[in-house]
Design a binder for these strands. Structure first.
Lengths: 108, 108
DNA sequence: CGGTATCCTAGGGGATACTG
DNA sequence: CAGTATCCCCTAGGATACCG
């Protein structure tokens, strides 16, 4: 995604998280807090297809939220983990979660 | 939107803000901090169509973020403003903005 | 194992015209 | 003034099959 400097930062950040599987992927990487394999993600997100997984991972990587490390030999292996920048999103994600819980509890 | 209790609160909240015009509308209502007319929104969001404006307003209203007050006479008038709950979203929106600024400045 | 390549569909989003 | 009503397009997202 080309960073559009004229744009509202909020919209920019939200666009980085928009995608059916971004948050579930983020959560899994966050709680593991170490490199996680492609196959690991695939198993923990049972409803996702390989195409979608790859697509969402590529976008997260492009936006600097995760990084990807490939080990070709002897048996192919690719690992993903949050970048420091990506990990630091927890600051506002926690606030969102907090607000959401309150919103849900207040019956709405 | 039927609140799906099983769902991650973060995903729920993000879904409430997903929509091309939700954030611009929110920002305008937030900074005005008083009832704003439909026509006022239309003028301040020049690229939006009436259809989209109505649609986004309906969704925000349904999610309890804004409320709508109609004054039919003598000349029809409809005003929108943030609910207390909606206004309280600023807590995490500010955090997002802050993170976004840092992200943009750090050159990415 | 970690992907592409194809194909398909629902619905988000836009343009424009009409209405109580 | 504050909306509906139509029509249309594009892309996010899914199913499935194949590949190095």
């Amino acid at each position: 995604m080309p960073v559009r400097l004229n744009e509202c930062p909020v919209e920019l950040v939200l666009s980085m998280l928009s995608g059916r599987w971004k948050i579930p992927i983020y959560r899994y990487l966050y709680k593991n807090n170490k490199p996680v394999r492609y196959s690991g993600l695939l198993q923990h997100l049972p409803a996702i297809s390989k195409k979608m997984l790859t697509e969402q991972l590529r976008e997260l990587e492009h936006d600097g939220i995760i990084n990807r490390t490939s080990y070709p030999e002897p048996r192919p292996k690719v690992e993903y983990m949050l970048t420091p920048s990506g990990r630091s999103m927890i600051v506002f994600l926690d606030k969102i979660s907090e607000w959401g819980e309150k919103y849900i509890l207040s019956d709405k």
